[in-house]
Design a protein around this nucleic acid. Structure first.
Length: 406
DNA sequence: ATTCCACAGGAAACAGTGGTCC
DNA sequence: GGACCACTGTTTCCTGTGGAAT
């Protein structure tokens, strides 16, 4: 790139001549004070939690909705406001916020609760270390801490609560919903946020009844609502006349088709703007939105592949190489690849498991077919372009030999 | 109607790692 | 320092399944 072009880029940037004026508002970390189209939900949650101000225990809440429907943002807004209110009134309230997808085991959830509540900075007898304690002991320490504080109110917020129940059952929820019988003076309330409406079916009836004292469903945004959200966001995020209405409409239409996910819509917009800026275009147009869609998809697949384990990568190559994609055939090719690079192959059971993981990630598609007397099997196909696979695996010294093997 | 294939996938156990507690 | 704990990734064992062939 010539010095002139570089100079012009830097000059434009220095003079603020970029399309985006406020980049932060196009990221998922940005939560606006008031979420569009969520006034009813915000009001109901605020009502439910406001009893804390009178020293009473709020109902346990369960919030349902697809990703990007604003559940978490609404809860964060309400709890933030409530926290300032309670501190003004001198009421001691803690609202630990846990994401059960990040804290992906039962014990990690307990550890995060302790960290969030600042228990690990208090007396040593209450500490919950990140390993070494039994689940029971960790739970007891948290409850003892609350009991010891006499008048401490805890509103425990668990995001992606369905993921916690899927992996670890409902023991933790049982303990916390029952804990109020043991605590005198203070209390624990629970807010669960879930992407799946059916997750309640997996709960013990006792947990179900106490957990879902109050339930709310966040409906997906419609295309029209997404348009308005994007228009609002674009006003804050972009310089004047830097984005066409057609681009916003297309963005809303794409995200609307995919579950009405506002986060996805904003992400599309941000990447499109970055592409347009890089092209030094004067405006974000429809073509940038389309390019953005392709880029997001390609980048995600590339990153997943690149960060996969060696065996997953070998398996992808085996699927790519196989003729009809039968489980048996794929496993055969996979094993021969392993022998080729002197690796001990994993068992077929484990490979089946990896295949189903890859299917969930959308990297491959597997359909179960029954061949009658010739058994039941899967037809496995790679769904991403082989160029993405080659570029992701090219840098791997051992695997690159397989890429060009017969 | 029954048989039989080639798996799918659940459950339990295990190995290795990294930690606490007494 | 030994007993105990949790986690991840894996293996082993086992039961269940759809539908063509018999």
């Amino acid at each position: 790139m010539s010095d002139d072009i570089l100079d012009s880029i830097f000059e434009k940037a220095a003079a603020g001549q970029t399309l985006i004026k406020n980049r932060k508002t196009l990221t998922i970390d940005y939560v606006p004070e008031r979420l569009p189209f969520r006034d009813d939900e915000t009001g109901t949650i605020a009502q439910a939690l406001s009893v804390v101000l009178k020293g009473a225990r709020p109902s346990n809440l369960l919030l349902f909705g697809k990703p990007g429907t604003g559940k978490t943002a609404v809860v964060k807004n309400v709890t933030k406001r409530l926290l300032t209110k309670t501190s003004d009134l001198g009421i001691e309230v803690l609202m630990p916020f846990i994401n059960a997808k990040t804290a992906n085991t039962g014990y990690k959830v307990l550890y995060e609760i302790a960290e969030n509540m600042g228990i690990n900075k208090e007396e040593k007898k209450f500490h919950v270390h990140f390993t070494g304690l039994s689940m029971g002991e960790a739970t007891d320490r948290i409850l003892d801490f609350i009991k010891n504080k006499k008048k401490l109110h805890v509103i425990l917020i668990i995001d992606e609560i369905d993921s916690l129940v899927d992996k670890n059952g409902d023991d933790i929820l049982y303990n916390f919903t029952r804990a109020n019988e043991r605590i005198i003076g203070g209390f624990i309330s629970l807010i669960g946020i879930s992407n799946s409406l059916t997750f309640k079916d997996k709960l013990d009836p006792r947990v179900r009844s106490s957990l879902s004292e109050e339930e709310m469903v966040f409906n997906p945004y419609t295309i029209e609502q997404l348009q308005k959200i994007l228009l609002n966001r674009a006003k804050v995020a972009f310089n004047e006349d830097c984005i066409s209405n057609a681009a916003i409409n297309l963005c809303a239409a794409i995200a609307g088709r995919e579950n009405g996910d506002a986060r996805r819509a904003i992400d599309l917009l941000r990447v499109a703007a970055e592409i347009a800026e890089r092209e030094r275009a004067s405006k974000v147009e429809e073509k940038h939105i389309r390019l953005s869609q392709e880029k997001i998809e390609k980048d995600t697949n590339y990153e997943i592949l690149k960060n996969s384990t060696t065996h997953t990568k070998i398996l992808i190559l085996a699927i790519l190489k196989s003729k009809n994609g039968n489980t048996g055939e794929v496993y055969e090719i996979y094993s021969s690849f392993c022998r080729h690079i002197q690796q001990e192959p994993l068992t077929q059971r484990r490979i089946t498991q990896i295949i189903s993981e890859l299917d969930q990630l959308g990297l491959i598609r597997s359909d179960v077919v029954s061949q009658g007397r010739y058994g039941r099997s899967q037809r496995i196909k790679v769904t991403i372009p082989s160029i993405t696979i080659t570029s992701a695996l090219r840098d791997d010294q051992i695997l690159s030999t397989l890429l060009f093997a017969d």
